[in-house]
Amino acid sequence: MIYFIWMILAQSYRLIVTIHDWQLYHVVLYGVGAYTSGMLAKNLGVPVFAAIPLGGAVASLAGVAITSVLLRTKGWGFYIATYGLAELIRLSWMKFRNPFGGSTGIIDIPYPPVVAGIDFSARIPYYFFSLGVMLIIMYMLYRLERSRIGDSFKAVSMDPLLAASTGISIPRQRLLACAIGGFFAGIAGGLLVHRLGAVDPKLFNITTMLYLLIWIVVGGTNSFWGPVLGVSVMYSLFELSRPLIQIRPMFFGIAMILVLLFMPGGLEGMVAKAAVRLRRLRGVQTAEAE
């Protein structure tokens, strides 16, 4: 369940990374989706299956708002400013007790209803529901990367000047990437909140964001399969290392530093390299056999 949510987050984050906007508010957008969807369902009685995409839409707007303020800030300042503005949103959940419930968050968020005889509030149907949502989102992102939009994102990240001279509007593409990525992050938040039935600001702090970065960096960002690999391997390790909960962050921090220093392509890059080498090895062998 949580694995599917991580997968959606990592995959939508990678879309933003293809345009080279490493930002630190993705997890907070996930929180925006969770809060919006939960509050719509609880306070306004919006049906759960309508509240989840609405949460995605609001998260997408929040992402666009943050990025549009910072469009002209470059490099390191941009990363820090995204962190700061994400904290602004997260702190406002803690500050305003009235709609957001302060640091204890919101409880009693409605579970999904019974649709066509299937009770989606039970664990197993919800599992398959979120699996389905994840697969649909992954398929959409997969197609998107191979579309004209995905190509223009990559063009911007490789050579902004050249991209701009071929008529690609860089600010527009960056905002578009944020909007799409934020939408899917918001949907992931909606999926979480209607399963947990509660939400609080601690779920979306910078530590969660750093873990998301670790999954992505260790997995590799060069291809679609990097985050898949990263989330699968690292999240499994994360769950397996539960007995070492106190010192767990250290292992993951060290793992990320080592990956950055010694295998810049991440796990995915290593697999790709190994595949090339294997093919060459096999080619040599067949050549010798002949």
Binding site: H20, W22, G75, W76, Y79, L210, L213, I214, V217, Q246, I247, R248, P249, M250, F252, G253, I254, A255, M256, I257, L260, L261, P264
Partner: peptide, 26 residues
């Protein structure tokens, strides 16, 4: 080792935060 790689250096020090925190805690 990461000179010129702004994103890499940034993320690596983020990982370093975890390392320091756990080290001090332990």
């Amino acid at each position: 080792p990461l000179r010129g790689d702004v994103v890499g250096g940034f993320i690596a020090t983020a990982g370093l935060m975890f390392v320091f925190e756990v080290f001090m805690g332990e």
